[in-house]
Design a protein around this nucleic acid. Structure first.
Length: 584
RNA sequence: GGGCUAUUAGCUCAGUUGGAUAGAGUGCUUGCCUCCGGAGCAAGAGGUCGCAGGUUCGAAUCCUGCAUAGCCCA
């Protein structure tokens, strides 16, 4: 999570939706196998589009094709008839009847119903669903890939904690979210780069240097006066000790020089610790970007020149201002004070200017929710840079760390916190990540160490992993018995004819829709929820449909189906950065 | 004083651009192991979607006001 000292401003909230440019495009986004077999939603959309075009009606913008909430209504439901009522000047139900008649020739639809105000409900033939097995097998790990992003260049910047102390659990949530989002957006066809912004140029670094120097003097028996503002954590003492070992003459150096040595040593040491912790958490950053480099390279002044040229920046009272009032802010913001210091906001604008100049079409920032007031101003700045809509900000809310229901206090400054490393060591990377990603990012999260460690239904990660392990165990047994999964032929898969089979097949078919949805709304928790539902359906299947004792043909067909379930479970867990163990 | 976000079952939370009888887990009550991993499955009870208006064929969802909580600012 990002730490910023700049004062947040006022302004209207904005919906931070950076939906892909092709959200309303045709249904050919998903990567297809050579069989041309389509998934249910695609097939239906294509059929409906053809029927509408045939009648001279335009495809309504708000058309939705989705599985109905209540399964009794069929496999897929469409609302087009209701949306067309005005244009066609006919009652929705009459339109629905026309469409149903036109589509009834399609053999893949077993049943088309009209219900309620004019919903069209479709039930697909079992033979259609069975083909899902072939689709998944053919796609392999690419199942769920789509071209939604269309190669859009995206940068996701996340964690970006100041290198002044170890990462705590709140950073962990941002890390899990950012890393998972990168994986999901890549799967959805975006060209994604992950970045960590190192705030190494500000006041925080000086406080860090002072903190270390203070502890060093203490260790050297100098009885220094306690600084007003310093990092009190134990880790500072360790750093001070190491720094002195490396620089024996440290305490004899002039104040400013000693400070600098401490600062640089401390920052590098802490940054290395952060990198190690993130690596242990399975989190990837492609670029580590230094704020200092931005200043050193003159990028800040360059951005000021750009702003002046576009009329969005001006000099007044010896300071340089950003004309943010023109973009809805209630007052203009200072970027360079009269004493020559540039503000945090100035660095941030220059940083984002730099991001866009590197060629990203979309920049996603993941910040702590306490920076929400800063969002409108940063959006305004991007607009001033001529990149309106190029920035999306995701806010990550607080994590309440608990132990058996008792809160554990966290504060870097006061030096009391449970570090990310401690938590990962205690409960594991898989359980922590799944916990972080099982809620939408903008709501507060209670993270109870005992609960997350528990191997029960309070902790859904085991439920999902167990589903996978169950299948793997079954496959192993089948192999020992010489039973093989069926081929992808209609005849071989014909034994998949129960309602339990259909339930699994329908859910497997929907996976790519969930991936797209998660990418479009930048919500990894949708994947987590999908996986819990798939696992639940699998466990039910396992209880109701015995595999190995069911006779050779049935066993083979069921093994084929469950193989697909295992693949999709692993695929989805991979998007969350959670492992899929063969046994637990 | 201004702004942002939230408020859904006892508890923790889903609910995608307004759709059908508001969902899941947990907890509670009650069933299911001669059988592929019971870390499992099934059934039941549990709701005025914070409150009051409005918009329309239709609102947990959109609009207005109010209440409560958290955060940011002045």
């Amino acid at each position: 999570m990002k730490k910023r000292d700049g004062p947040p401003g006022k302004g209207p909230s904005r919906r931070l939706d950076c939906a892909g440019k092709h959200a309303n495009g045709p249904s050919t986004r998903f990567v297809q196998g050579a069989t041309k077999q389509m998934r249910a939603k695609q097939h239906l959309e294509e059929a409906l589009r053809a029927a509408l075009a045939d009648k001279g009606w335009a495809w309504p913008e708000k058309a939705v094709i989705e599985p109905p909430k209540d399964k009794r209504f069929g496999d897929m439901s469409a609302n087009v008839a209701m949306l067309l009522a005005k244009e066609a000047k006919k009652a929705p139900r009459a339109i629905a009847e026309d469409l149903a008649a036109a589509l009834s020739a399609d053999a893949l639809f077993e049943k088309i119903d009209i219900a309620g105000p004019g919903f069209l409900n479709f039930t697909f033939a079992p033979s259609f669903w069975r083909k899902t097995v072939g689709v998944i097998r053919e796609a392999g790990e690419a199942y769920g890939d789509s071209t939604l992003g269309n190669g859009t260049r995206v940068q996701v910047e996340y964690v970006s904690a100041n290198p002044t102390g170890p990462l705590h659990i709140g950073h962990g949530r941002g890390a899990a979210l950012g890393d998972s989002l990168v994986r999901i957006m890549e799967k959805a066809g975006y060209d994604v780069e992950a970045e960590y912004y190192i705030n190494d140029a500000g006041r925080q670094m000086n406080i860090l240097g002072n903190s270390i120097l203070y502890r060093a003097r203490e260790l050297g028996g100098k009885n220094p006066a306690e600084p007003e503002d310093y990092y009190r954590g134990e880790y500072i003492i360790d750093i001070a000790r190491a720094c002195m070992a490396l620089n024996p003459g440290l305490l004899d150096l002039p104040e400013a020089e000693a400070m600098e040595v401490c600062k640089v040593y401390g920052m590098n040491d802490i940054l290395q610790g952060i990198k190690d912790d993130l690596a242990a958490f399975g989190v990837r950053h492609d670029v580590w970007f230094s704020e200092k480099s931005l200043v050193a390279d003159g990028k800040v002044e360059e951005t000021f020149a750009d702003l002046t040229a576009s009329g969005m920046g001006y000099e007044a009272d010896g300071a340089f201002w950003f004309r943010s009032t023109q973009l809805g802010d209630d007052k203009d913001r200072v970027l360079r004070k009269s004493n020559g210091d540039t503000t945090y906001f100035a660095s941030d604008i220059a940083y984002h200017d730099n991001k866009f100049k590197r060629g990203f079409d979309l920049v996603v920032d993941i910040w702590g929710a306490d920076h929400h007031g800063y969002v409108p101003r940063m959006m305004a700045a991007c607009e001033a840079l001529g990149k309106k809509g190029g920035l999306a900000v995701i806010l990550v809310n607080l994590v309440n760390l608990l132990k058996n229901g008792e809160p554990i206090a966290m504060s870097t400054r006061a030096g009391q916190f449970e570090t990310l490393k401690d938590v990962v060591d205690e409960v594991g990377s898989d359980a922590s990540r799944f916990m972080f990603l099982s809620r939408k990012s903008d709501s507060k999260l209670d993270f109870d160490l005992e609960l997350v460690k528990q191997q029960s239904m309070d902790n859904p990660v085991y439920y999902v992993q167990y589903a996978y392990a169950r299948i793997r165990s079954l496959q192993k047994k089948a192999e020992e018995a010489g039973t093989r999964a069926a081929e992808d032929t209609p005849a071989a898969l014909a034994p998949l004819d129960t309602e339990h089979d259909m339930e699994l097949l329908r859910l497997l078919d929907q996976y790519p829709d969930y991936v797209e949805s998660a990418a479009r709304t930048q919500s990894p928790h949708l994947i987590s929820m999908y996986l819990q539902e798939l696992a639940s359906t699998l466990h039910r299947y396992y209880t109701n449909c015995h595999v190995l004792s069911a006779g050779e043909d049935v066993a083979a067909a069921r093994l084929a189906l469950l193989g697909c379930v295992a693949d999709v479970l692993k695929n989805g867990l991979g998007l969350l950065g959670v492992s899929a163990p063969d046994s637990m």
